[in-house]
Design a protein around this nucleic acid. Structure first.
Lengths: 256, 256
DNA sequence: TATTCAATGCGTTATTATGACACAATGTAA
DNA sequence: TTACATTGTGTCATAATAACGCATTGAATA
């Protein structure tokens, strides 16, 4: 099917495949060279950037829909992914944004299911930046990373969704070691610290940080040091998922 | 409109008023005589208990829908209310459960929007038990409190929704003083402790508890003691919402 | 080749938070 | 009057945290 046909079909008949009124939007975080980034797509119809999103198949679990979208954008399969908030402002509709675009594609009908109000579920994903190959979706002409302090204007309420995802990530970091999902399998202590500092947006004491992380027991030091670095070479560590799960059960965070 | 007509109309034409495929279910917590309780309704069509729920008007914010449902069930207006999770199992449908009921009401059409798959957003509410007058909704013949260790069998996945709400409440209790929403304006320290013990399901040390609560500064002692009690009379306290919000901003819970 | 220097590994100390427990005060009931 | 359950207040040992020192490493520089 040609691009135009595909689009047209989506607008006219998409509601036979997908649930109406409900969408999923993903805030995909990555970490690269000391910077926290988010993956965005540029929506053709708006010429603006947006969170990668999609719809839920009529017989599909929402979590799977999110997973599918992520797989398509990043190529990654086994991803840390969770819903964090539902956005349901009655004004959520791309009708106005869409119309010029549809004319361009040769579609005049403005009674598409796509123009109706949408409630969207925000999903937050943490991925290993180095393993991602950004791929735009059908209605986008670009897919790229942006530093979290450098996100462009976005369609609809996507800026707010992103903001909430970031807040959510910060909250979680204190109690769940979610940060590890953002790093490669092997990482150094300074890298891990930089990640924490970036997410929390504050400086941490190097020595206290190391002590705290090690005391949780969720990282194991490898008999290997980073070679290609100037100055003293740091050790590699790996995330010990079994100890992590044990710690989770015992209840990380403090108890009254 | 008669009851039968009202029901029939809801099944046949409800989708003109409400969004399809999306519902809201509320887990309403109350606290009474040292016991944590949840408010349930008994669905006529199933003869089983269920969480109070409802649908979202075509032009209504989801939070308002939840608020509306709560107002209708409890009579309360200003309520601590928040979404906690979306449940989207593709099998979520009351079709089978509904059918006998509809025959009874004289409705044969089984192509109702009500039979389609529903994604539901779970809302958690904390209310002052003493101020609630439970009111059943149209399709329910009862509305009552149940101890959280004593909930009956429920329709669909409502047991799971309830379970997640309880877990969520426990998690939150450590970092946000949500518990205060479950108590009357004036309360004693032993009452507050009992509430915490009930929610967390464990004993706490009386003296350490008091110290910790007071150290947060979110409660103020009143110059008043409980009179109608045997043995030593405890002081009354009140929740200081301004100090609470200040504490929240400063970030309750621990920082890395 | 020796020196500099940024970054890392490892450690110390003061302060604060927490958990476990003691004892006096209150007011009803025996 | 006494016993008793319950509350208010305090102490102490221990653990967790924050702040900081110093030696080590190894490429870059003199």
């Amino acid at each position: 099917m040609s691009f135009e046909k595909e689009i047209k079909d989506h607008y006219l008949n998409g509601d036979k495949k997908f649930l109406r009124h409900i969408s999923v939007d993903c805030v995909i975080f990555g970490f690269h060279i000391g910077e926290l980034k988010v993956l965005l797509v540029r929506a053709r119809y708006a010429g603006k950037w947006a969170l990668p999103g999609g719809f839920i198949l009529k017989d599909e679990h929402m979590d799977l829909a999110a997973k599918r979208i992520l797989k398509n954008r990043t190529g990654l399969d086994d991803i840390y992914l969770q819903q964090f908030h539902v956005f349901s402002d009655p004004g959520r509709s791309t009708k106005k944004i869409n119309q010029q675009f549809l004319k361009n594609v040769g579609l005049k009908n403005d009674k598409s299911w796509m123009f109706e109000r949408f409630i969207t579920v925000g999903y937050s994903a943490l991925v290993d930046f180095t393993k991602v190959t950004p791929v735009p979706d059908v209605i986008s002409d670009a897919c790229d990373w942006f530093g979290i302090n450098d996100v462009p204007e976005m369609i609809l309420d996507h800026s707010q969704i992103f903001k909430e995802a970031l807040q959510n990530l910060r909250r979680q970091l204190n109690f769940h070691p979610v940060g590890f999902n953002l790093l490669p399998k092997k990482f150094t202590m300074p890298e891990l610290q930089k990640l924490y500092e970036t997410i929390l947006d504050k400086k941490l004491d190097r020595r206290n940080f190391q002590r705290k992380i090690l005391s949780t027991g969720i990282v194991t030091r490898l008999n290997e040091i980073r070679k290609d670095v100037a100055h003293k070479a740091p050790y590699f560590y790996k995330f010990d998922i079994r100890k992590y799960e044990k710690a989770l059960k015992a209840g990380m965070g403090f108890e009254l």
